[in-house]
């Protein structure tokens, strides 16, 4: 029923002067696998209103997507982290102008096996100690003396992933700085399976994957400082930003030259209009309505400037 109401709202929403079913054009999107479900949902609804616009969404990872974005292959890049300085430089060198639109929040969740009785929280310093390059943490006891003297098995996303970039930046201060002797996978389900099957495992990945496997995983509360209150990731704590420092904004980057094309402009403004419901729908945390409105104002301002 909710869906029906939602769909009928979509149909009613005024979008263009000309009839939406006549709008033609292509919208090429690539990038983060974290943002993919949101963009896919938007594309699905968008095509119900604009059936003739051809939308493609690829999944090359945030970094791989930016490469395509900056080589001119795509109009929009899904990104689970902001652009890196090196990527910004490349954009400048190629005279590519772009606008960044936040679309929602994701909380990177640190998880352990549900049968793990000892660990309930970690401080950021402890995370740093575990994940830094050449880390000496080999057993749980190395983290806290009262924990078992058993080897710790670490799981994390691969290096092409924006989640990896964000986690390493937030915890170790520099994106990409990390120990390398852990089980890596670009597929978060592999990480979920790994932690589910190993009592002494620890891993990190996007909140949506934790939420879907809540019964088989245990999330750790994270304290930003020693002595500070440790906070568990939840829709609420991620949205408020109290789940620090692992809650992050996720974005779409839109090329300005593409935004001049009616199909892309309609797509992005549709995205901002309907993101609030769709983001929640696929398991992420929406921004405040104000932020989406601000984004739409940005688009209008851009169109007016032209």
């Amino acid at each position: 029923m909710k869906r029906l109401i939602f769909l009928s709202l979509l149909m009613l929403s005024p979008s263009t002067q000309s009839a939406p079913q006549d709008l033609r054009g292509t919208v090429k999107i690539d990038g983060s696998s974290t943002v993919f479900p949101i963009t896919e949902a938007v594309a699905e609804e968008f095509n119900k209103v604009f059936p003739r616009v051809r939308v493609t969404v690829g999944v090359s990872g945030t970094g791989g997507g930016f490469k395509k974005f900056l080589s001119g292959y795509t109009d929009i890049n899904d990104a689970s982290r902001p652009m890196k300085p090196s990527e910004k430089q490349k954009a400048k060198a190629k005279h590519i102008k772009y606008i960044k639109f936040p679309v929602g929040y994701d909380g990177i969740t640190v998880v352990v096996n549900p049968k793990n009785t000892w660990a309930t929280e970690l401080t950021v310093e402890e995370l740093r100690k575990i994940w830094k390059p050449q880390s000496t943490v080999k057993t749980w006891k190395d983290i806290r003396p009262e924990w078992p003297n058993k080897p710790i098995k670490l799981y994390g996303p691969g290096t092409d992933s924006g989640t990896f970039d964000y986690f390493t930046e937030a915890i170790l201060g520099k994106s990409g700085r990390s120990r390398s002797d852990f089980t890596k996978s670009e597929d978060d389900n592999v990480l979920v399976q790994g932690v589910m099957g190993d009592l002494y495992a620890m891993g990190y990945f996007g909140y949506a994957y934790y939420k879907e496997n809540k019964n088989n995983l245990k999330a750790l509360a994270i304290a930003p400082k020693k002595g500070a209150k440790a906070i568990l990731p939840s829709l609420q704590s991620i949205k408020e930003g109290s789940y620090k420092p692992l809650s992050r904004e996720i974005y779409i980057y839109v090329k300005e030259s593409s935004l001049k094309k009616p199909a892309v402009r309609e797509f992005v403004s549709f995205y901002m209009k309907h993101a609030k419901n769709l983001v929640k729908n696929v398991g992420y945390v929406p921004l405040t309505p104000k932020k989406y409105q601000a984004a739409n104002l940005k688009i209008e301002a851009f169109s007016a400037k032209k």
């Binding site: 690539d30 993919f36 896919e40 594309a43 699905e44 939308v55 969404v57 690829g58 090359s60 395509k68």
Partner: peptide, 20 residues
């Protein structure tokens, strides 16, 4: 095909050999 960038979500079927 992943390497050469085939799309994952696509809202149409190809009509020519130059289509994604």
């Amino acid at each position: 095909l992943i390497v050469i960038g085939a799309a994952t979500y696509i809202s149409f079927t190809p009509e020519s050999i130059m289509d994604p």
